[in-house]
Amino acid sequence: MESFTLKGRGASKGVAEGEALLTHDAISFLSDISITEGIIISPQSKCKGQSVSDKILIFPTGRGSTADPYGFYMLKKAGKAPKAVINVDANPTTVAGAIISNTPMVYKLDKNPLDIIETGDHVLVDGNKGIVIITKKGRANNGRAS
């Protein structure tokens, strides 16, 4: 069973696992995502139109300022938030958003998650320990089949 672990820093506590959605864009939860629907709406994003709901959302860092954490919270209340967030570097507005919405978040991993994780991989995020466990897509099924 091929799964491997990255170690980093937990920004927001809790454990969650699910399917990865990876974007190379910096994300503002207030202006890049529809906060009532959980759909990526920024016109320049390659992931425009995709849903972040119940995904493990991986992106380089956050953008936005004063009101951005509220956007994350609204998304959670609407039932459309990601299950967990992984960042390369943490923008404090994303940290604040993850904490007030009780969503696990991990960053500063020992390898760049953007190089290692692909959309569709199965990912477990442990915000208490600051670790990420990745099972590459396809291989999980192969493992079970053999």
Binding site: S65, T66, A67, P92, T93, A96
Partner: peptide, 10 residues
């Protein structure tokens, strides 16, 4: 004065 641009919740 010494102050950062913090977010609303912070």
């Amino acid at each position: 004065v010494m102050v950062n641009r913090e977010s609303g919740p912070t």
